[in-house]
Design a binder for these strands. Structure first.
Length: 293
DNA sequence: AGGCAGGTGGCCA
DNA sequence: TGGCCACCTGCC
């Protein structure tokens, strides 16, 4: 494929290599890969593909397929250019929560990607009891086998309609394992109600979450991930094993159920609880594996 | 070599 | 409600 020349993405995007890795490949999205020869990230989201690298001054450069210059604008939106992260940070309770303050300080500039709701739901339906590298394999195989080609040799994640066209055994052959059954059932439901996801996305958080959880395989955690990462509902507070560890160890909440922890998160961290969650999650995860590409 | 991983749903008291 | 367990698959 022909790629455009590298061009600056603008002064509002300042990243260290570490921060860029955490943002693109830290568990929000699963379709970004680092090319160590070219020293850039290449990723696919919605129907777009791009490459990102950082300059010495911390600003980013982007390359797009030569025939898709509009990708730059889509990328800016995807990276949250239109979100007031500074105001959200300031509204978090770091003044009275020293652990949160440490987490914020350890990864300044961390953002939430602004992803498509349907594909975020699909990716997180793959995530149950899987680690990031394996979730990426599942997404890649879904795209290769069921998704539309958006550039030579590059496929988007399948739409739910496309997922519904596959059989459960086909989905199992894509390494989805026991998740295939629920993904197939959810795909069938969504295919029969094409407007449902848009309605959920437009609903307030509590209603949206309740409706999502009626889909097979969608419990509290996956619903919160889809709403936080795919629908910009920043009060969603996904509680996974990492967050359980943090809240036990640093907040003394031993013996709490995930539902209780999720409620605690929204009360303690406020309307942008999910933003705080991302810092806590990154911090805890990095305690275990401090070095990343 | 076996347990365990960014969960969920079903079954039992 | 609350606890326990099966469930695919791959990696330590």
């Amino acid at each position: 494929m022909n790629w455009s020349p590298w061009q600056p993405l603008g002064p509002s995007f300042v990243f260290t290599p570490d921060l860029l890795a955490e943002t693109l490949d830290g568990g929000q999205a699963f379709r970004w890969n680092f090319d160590s020869d070219g020293d850039y990230w290449q990723g696919v989201w919605s129907t777009h593909v791009a490459r990102i690298r950082h300059m010495d001054n911390g600003q980013l450069q982007v390359a797009t397929p030569a025939d898709s210059p509009e990708t730059v604008q889509h990328l800016s939106a995807y990276l949250g250019q239109n979100v007031d992260w500074r105001a959200m940070l300031d509204a978090l309770p770091w003044r009275s929560d020293s652990h949160l303050a440490n987490c914020l300080k350890s990864l300044p500039g961390l953002r939430l990607l602004q992803q498509s709701f349907p594909e975020t739901l699909l990716a997180f339906l793959c995530s149950a009891t899987k680690q990031i590298p394996q979730i990426k394999v599942m997404c890649q195989r879904l795209a290769e086998n069921l998704g539309s080609e958006i550039a030579p040799g590059i496929q988007a994640l399948p739409t739910w309609q496309q997922v519904a066209s596959a059989s459960e055994s086909q989905l199992r052959s894509l390494a989805l394992g026991f998740r295939a059954k629920n993904i197939k059932k959810t795909a069938d439901q969504l295919a029969s109600r094409p407007e449902l996801l848009a309605e959920i996305e437009a609903a307030p958080y509590p209603e949206a979450k309740a409706q999502l959880m009626e889909l097979p395989g969608v419990g509290e955690k996956i619903a919160d991930c889809a709403l936080l990462f795919g629908a910009a509902k920043f009060e969603a507070f996904p509680v996974d094993t990492w967050i359980i560890k943090v809240l036990e160890k640093r907040y003394g909440l031993t013996g709490w159920t995930p539902t209780q922890l999720s409620q605690f998160g929204r009360i303690h961290f406020g309307p942008y609880a999910g933003f705080a969650q991302q810092f806590l999650f990154a911090w805890e995860r990095r305690q275990k594996s401090p070095t990343r590409a």
